[in-house]
């Protein structure tokens, strides 16, 4: 069994194996313009190509089910799969494990990298809604913007977005043990950024929308002092960075620059991380914001 076919949690008890089905025959439809990938999808190169560094699959307008079957088949053959002509296919990188990498050219669809479990995804373009939905571990880098509910309920890994994020980014994020999700947004964020956030780190270079971090009860949002709203929701405190903040934030700003510095955005501005000194940390005053809400 390859590592794509079983799901094991670190230190988890042995479970019956859950093999994923082999790629359906329809994959030929999705990759017919790419002989190498088609051969991969059909398993013709199964033995010889395990050492292939990367495989290219053209998705075109294929249905998400066919597209994902083709991607899974390609990931069986190579650790890096390059996807071209991507037209909004959903679920790319779904549950992808560590050691596997997708390079996406075009526009991936909703739920990119959902439940991803250690893999790496880089999008040379913009992503749609719910990028990194319930992602467990790994890395998503978007050379563009990302849509609504970006990073919904992320539990681990990093999500770097060069430009803006839509509404309700980084909501319901949580952390546990050594899993601490990190979301970096290079542009502005829509309303409700960090709503009900229970853990993890958000870095916002641009302006937040309204209702910033309402219901937040864990984790930290770093944003520029100049962008802290005057009507900060009750229960949140904005404070200067301490040494630990500077270390975490400094690392993420440097990571942003390594991914995006010098890239020109559609509006003509050049991507660059804001200086560390400009940021403050936004934290919840309590991990129990609604402790006094109820009576019985």
């Amino acid at each position: 069994m390859s590592d794509q076919t079983t799901f094991e949690r670190e230190g988890g008890a042995g479970l019956p194996e859950h093999p994923l089905p082999s790629a359906p025959e329809v994959t030929a439809v999705t990759v017919e313009q790419n002989a190498a990938a088609q051969a991969v999808a059909e398993g013709a190169m199964a033995v010889e190509t395990t050492s292939v560094a990367s495989v290219t699959v053209e998705l075109g307008t294929s249905h998400f089910r066919e597209a994902n079957a083709a991607v899974r088949a390609a990931l069986e053959q190579a650790n890096t799969v390059v996807l071209t002509e991507v037209f909004a296919q959903r679920y790319l990188g779904c549950a992808m494990k560590a050691g596997k990498r997708l390079e996406i050219h075009g526009t991936p669809g909703n739920d990119l990298a959902c439940y991803m479990d250690g893999g790496s995804v880089e999008v040379f373009g913009s992503a749609q809604d719910q990028t990194a939905n319930t992602m467990n571990a790994g890395s998503v880098v978007v050379h563009g913007r990302s849509g609504d509910a970006t990073g919904y309920a992320m539990r681990g890994g990093e999500l770097l977005i060069r430009d803006d994020a839509g509404w309700r980014a980084a909501i319901n994020m949580k952390q546990y043990g050594d899993r601490r999700p990190m979301v970096v947004i290079g542009g502005d964020a829509g309303d409700f950024l960090g709503e009900y956030m229970a853990g993890g780190v958000v870095v916002l270079m641009g302006r937040p929308g309204s209702h910033l971090a309402s219901g937040m009860h864990g984790g930290v949002v770093y944003l520029q002092r100049a962008h802290v709203p005057s009507n900060l929701p009750q229960g949140l405190v904005a404070c200067d960075l301490d040494a630990e903040d500077a270390k975490v934030l400094g690392g993420l700003l440097a990571r942003y620059d390594r991914c995006f510095a010098g890239e020109v955005r559609p509006d003509g501005t050049v991507a660059a991380a804001a200086p560390l000194e400009a940021f403050v940390a936004l934290r919840p005053a309590s991990s129990r914001p609604y402790a006094a809400l109820y009576a019985s």
Partner: peptide, 26 residues
């Protein structure tokens, strides 16, 4: 639950990735 000890575990009223039948399908 994979959350820290002692913090409230909050399930929001909606799934914010489901605002419609089409989203449920997703």
């Amino acid at each position: 639950r994979m959350i820290p000890e002692g913090t409230d575990a909050i399930s929001p009223a909606p799934h914010h990735d489901i605002y419609s039948i089409e989203d449920l399908r997703q």
